[in-house]
Amino acid sequence: MMPNQRAKPTLRRRQLGRMLERCREDAGLTQQAAAASMNWPHHKLSKIENARAHIPAKDVEPYLRKCGVTDEAFILALANLAKNAAKKGWWAGFGDAILTTYMDHISVETEATRIRYYAPNLIPGLLQPRNYAREIIRATGTLVPELVEARVDVRTARQAVLTKAERPLDFWTVINESVLHHEFRENPEAMYEQLERLLELSQRPTITIQVMPIRAASHPGLLGLFSLLDFEKPYPSIVQVEDIRGSSFIEEDSDVQAFENAWERIIAAALPEDRSRELIKKVMEERRS
């Protein structure tokens, strides 16, 4: 980040600001009135709601009481969110190997209870074995070998959310059939290993893999990759979209609902789980013949 560039608010801080704003509005309070009730200047609350300033965890409960909130579990959840808004995770130890936008990606992935991921052009990172991950990282960047390996390490570490002993991530993905036919000429085994991994993971009760057939009917996924992330209550669901520059998030409720509707149409157009497994097996057999 350049010396005079303002740091981007973390997703945790943006979530907290939105939820505090919603509580204030539900109470019928203006920013001026709510700020005055806490003896704050108006601009302080404005910055908190816009994720440009941090609210200390100790101030969350009295502020929510001023807004008429009585749900103890909700108050505790927001106080914990304020406490952890700037907390660093395991990924901080990888330093320059992780871009700032990727840190947000890993953070929400770690905290999510369910992810629904439409993958039109590649296998989702959480399902990639090291060999496949290495080929994808090489192909999508101009990195020195050491940095490639560091990012492969990060991608592998992320996958722990699928197998953790307590409440593993519920992961549901739709993968385009064409992705199953990718070729890595210098490493032909990488794709076969990936197909094996898909079959293995599809047996887990918390992982659902569907394949979108090449001849599928038109569906909203034709517009590109996205994922829906759900969290424990009271935190709202969000959408993540990715491109060559990294990730960005969609957080407005009405926008998230549009992606929820699109997801339902996508899974309806895709093959069911059993037929998806059969197709993956068929592609594997063709590669070995």
Results as ranks from 00 to 15, higher is better:
3 P>W: 00
8 K>D: 05
8 K>L: 09
16 L>R: 10
17 G>K: 05
29 L>S: 09
36 A>G: 11
40 W>T: 10
40 W>N: 10
41 P>F: 11
41 P>M: 07
52 R>G: 03
53 A>C: 04
54 H>P: 03
57 A>L: 09
59 D>M: 15
60 V>T: 09
61 E>D: 14
64 L>N: 05
69 V>E: 05
69 V>H: 00
72 E>T: 07
72 E>K: 05
72 E>D: 06
74 F>W: 04
74 F>M: 04
77 A>W: 09
87 K>A: 13
97 A>M: 14
98 I>S: 12
101 T>D: 15
108 V>L: 12
108 V>Q: 06
113 T>A: 13
115 I>A: 07
115 I>S: 08
115 I>D: 11
116 R>L: 14
117 Y>E: 15
118 Y>F: 15
122 L>K: 12
125 G>Q: 10
129 P>E: 13
130 R>V: 13
131 N>W: 13
135 E>I: 12
135 E>R: 14
137 I>E: 14
137 I>A: 11
138 R>K: 15
142 T>I: 12
147 L>W: 10
153 D>I: 05
154 V>R: 03
154 V>H: 02
158 R>T: 05
163 T>H: 00
178 S>N: 07
183 E>G: 00
186 E>T: 15
191 M>I: 15
194 Q>L: 15
195 L>P: 11
200 E>S: 05
203 Q>E: 11
204 R>T: 05
207 I>A: 05
210 Q>A: 06
215 R>M: 14
215 R>T: 13
219 H>P: 07
219 H>Y: 11
222 L>M: 15
224 G>Y: 11
225 L>S: 15
226 F>N: 12
228 L>Y: 09
232 E>S: 13
234 P>T: 02
235 Y>N: 01
242 E>N: 01
242 E>L: 02
243 D>A: 02
246 G>Q: 05
248 S>L: 06
255 D>I: 00
255 D>V: 04
261 N>S: 09
262 A>P: 00
267 I>D: 00
268 A>N: 04
268 A>C: 06
269 A>T: 12
271 L>G: 01
275 R>L: 11
275 R>I: 03
276 S>I: 10
276 S>E: 08
280 I>Q: 03
282 K>N: 02
283 V>K: 01
285 E>I: 03
289 S>V: 08
